[in-house]
């Protein structure tokens, strides 16, 4: 098992955000975590990487309970951190992904690896640009490159599609397909499957801190979920004719919004 969660309960500021979540993900799988705002999906992935304290239950990653195998996990937060008063280039931000609990310095070849990671997300030409001047979608891709530079066996992404333009979404789909070929496990928090529909075989749907659905991505009754999602995020119904065609063909139930 790449990820295994048993009876996970998380309390934040006095309210129960996760209320007994049980789930496991086998190595090499791509799983999407869906759910409305406030259903606890971000908290679930944050508890996996130790960003929120676990109140009760167990989190096991690659069979190791308690101590996380940091160097094998790549984490992509929702957006770039607030602290960026000083300019930093895309290459510098990406290189910080080489550090973990054992490595406080990136070591030799950091620059080269950082350029390779940026090339992987299609941003090789912006390596020396300050991240502050990049578009929202490009910033998101920089964060993905920062997670990929350590060549993780498990990639955890918190709403990677939010704020991404279509070019970035397609670049992400290609990147994830490459990771899957390498045998890596991918865990994504999503509002909609969108361009990633072809990659995702299984979805977990959270509702008020509990798992409401766990099964194949092409699920009966998912229409209601998709419907809800669409209403909650009208801004995301951007036109994408070319991709919409392929997505509809592969997973009609979840992507019919086009």
């Amino acid at each position: 098992m790449a990820v295994s969660v048993r009876g996970l309960r998380v309390e934040l500021g006095g309210s129960l955000v996760l209320d007994g979540v049980d789930a496991s993900v086998r190595q090499g799988k791509a799983v999407a975590i869906l759910g409305a705002n406030g259903s606890g999906k971000s908290t679930l992935v944050k508890s996996l990487v130790g960003l929120v304290p676990v109140t009760a239950g167990e989190v096991e990653i690659f069979g190791a309970a308690g101590k996380l195998p940091w160097s094998r996990i790549g984490y992509v937060p929702q957006r770039m951190g607030a602290g960026s008063g000083v300019p930093a280039t895309a290459a510098e931000v990406v290189a910080s992904g080489l550090l973990d609990n054992r490595r406080l310095r990136p070591g030799r070849g950091a620059r080269r690896r950082s350029l390779e990671a940026l090339e992987g997300v299609g941003l090789a030409d912006r390596a020396s640009a300050s991240v502050q001047v990049l578009s929202g979608g490009q910033q998101q891709r920089v964060l993905i490159a920062r997670a990929l530079i350590r060549e993780p066996d498990l990639l955890i992404m918190d709403e990677p599609l939010a704020g991404m333009d279509q070019e970035s979404r397609e670049a992400l789909a290609r990147t994830l397909a490459g990771l899957q070929d390498r045998g890596a496990t991918v865990l994504l928090v999503l509002h909609e499957l969108g361009e990633l529909t072809a990659l995702i075989r299984r979805t977990l749907v959270l509702e008020e801190g509990r798992i409401a659905y766990d099964g194949p991505a092409r699920l009966p009754g998912s229409e209601a979920e998709a419907e809800q999602d669409r209403h909650a995020h009208p801004a995301s119904s951007w036109p994408g004719p070319a991709v919409a065609g392929t997505a509809t063909a592969q997973a009609p139930d979840l992507s019919r919004k086009w």
Binding site: W70, Y75, G81, V93, L99, N101, R105, A110
Partner: peptide, 22 residues
């Protein structure tokens, strides 16, 4: 000497913690 780690921390503390940095 610790510029890479201190940069990572000051640029994005949440990511630094999720990477296992102390």
């Amino acid at each position: 000497g610790l510029r890479p780690a201190l940069f990572a921390l000051c640029h994005d503390e949440e990511f630094a913690r999720a990477s296992g940095l102390p």
